[in-house]
Simulated assay, not measured.
Amino acid sequence: MASESSRIVSAWRPAVPGVVEVFHARFTEYAYPMHVHDAWTLLIVDTGAVRYDLDRHEHGTPHDTVSLLPPHVPHNGSPVTPEGFRKRVLYLDGTHLGGDFIGAAVDRPDLRDPLLRRRVGQLHGTLGLPGEELEAESRLLFVGERLREHLRGGGPASQRPADPVLAGRLRELLDERIVEGVVLREAAGLLGAHPAHLVRTFSAAYGIAPHQYLTSLRVGRARRLLLEGRSPGDTAVAAGFYDQSHLTRHFRKLVGVPPGRYRAG
């Protein structure tokens, strides 16, 4: 039997619509028995590989594969080698993938797609950062679109043309909500547009994603507050950042120095 020391896990539920749970794990000896989930399971393996049975067929997850396991379908899982595996998992509700895709996912659960693999990895990186919900929501939308393309068995879905007027309306909304921010689905409801189309048309119009634009505005506000003598901690809250470390991460990236050094200079 595997010892508890052979299992290292972390799990949390981010404030991102559609994500039921984020689960990161490192297992060396542990094997999952047959079980089901009530959510979609989106799995990538960073080291090692996993062997599993789904619908009485054996499958595997080499490092360049994205595995998508549908809800309510029994599966198990075990390491392929004695060294075990390290995996990152997203459990998603039906917001991005409906029940119509369950049959296709049972038939083709393992997807060889480097772009999808990279996007899922980037999404995990964003989900681990408090205050980056707008970016995470945008990345999740495009992951969902890519998954649906695979499950349909066709090429990329047709995209609506860019809409400069819509992009301008989103820009005005972001300008009005620098501090409080806005989640993507709320913005889509207010502006009467699909969230993915909203991100695409804004990026096409301004050459920057909505979350990058909002972060730039917040850093600009933080610069002014710091020069007025506000402390980095007070500035972070007043400029719309989650906390001081959130401010520091983006401030250093856009300005080149941390807030305290900028203020002292």
Rank of each mutant, 00 (worst) to 15 (best):
H75T: 00
L97N: 01
R7P: 08
H24A: 10
T41G: 00
D107L: 07
E137N: 11
S231R: 14
N76E: 06
H57Q: 12
H75A: 03
A15P: 09
L190S: 05
V19P: 02
Q122K: 08
A209R: 08
V257G: 10
Y213C: 14
G155R: 12
R177H: 15
M1F: 14
G48L: 09
R56W: 04
H250P: 05
S216F: 11
A167C: 03
R86L: 04
R224N: 11
A209M: 01
K87V: 00
P130K: 02
R117S: 03
L147M: 15
T248V: 07
R88C: 02
P70W: 02
L170T: 08
H124A: 10
A31T: 14
A136W: 04
W12F: 15
H72V: 05
A193L: 06
Q244L: 13
R86H: 06
G77T: 03
A193M: 04
R118C: 07
G265A: 15
E135R: 12
R230Y: 14
R56F: 06
G121P: 00
Y32K: 05
V16Q: 05
V120D: 00
V182F: 02
D243E: 11
V45K: 06
A187S: 11
A187M: 14
G256T: 15
H63D: 06
L190Y: 07
H211S: 15
E176S: 08
K87M: 12
L184R: 04
L173Q: 12
D38K: 07
R118V: 07
G155P: 12
P62L: 07
T201G: 05
R51F: 09
L147D: 09
T126I: 02
T41H: 01
H96E: 12
V9Q: 11
A39L: 05
G229M: 12
A204K: 05
H59N: 13
P82H: 11
A25N: 05
R13W: 07
D163G: 03
R185H: 14
D107Y: 13
R160V: 14
R148G: 03
E135G: 10
R146P: 06
A39G: 03
D46C: 00
D163M: 02
G48F: 02
V182I: 10
A193F: 03
P17M: 10
A31I: 03
V22S: 01
G18I: 03
Q244Y: 04
P71A: 03
P82M: 10
V73Q: 03
P232H: 06
L226V: 13
I44P: 02
G189N: 11
R146T: 13
R171H: 01
P109R: 15
R13Y: 07
V89K: 00
A264S: 15
G48M: 13
L247A: 10
L129R: 12
H37K: 02
E186W: 10
R7V: 12
P164H: 14
I178P: 01
L147P: 06
G153P: 08
R169D: 07
A205P: 02
R249F: 12
D113G: 02
T248G: 06
V182E: 12
H37W: 01
I44Q: 10
R261A: 13
A238G: 09
L214M: 09
Q212N: 09
H150G: 08
R26H: 12
D93E: 05
G155N: 04
R263H: 13
T41D: 02
G18D: 06
L191I: 05
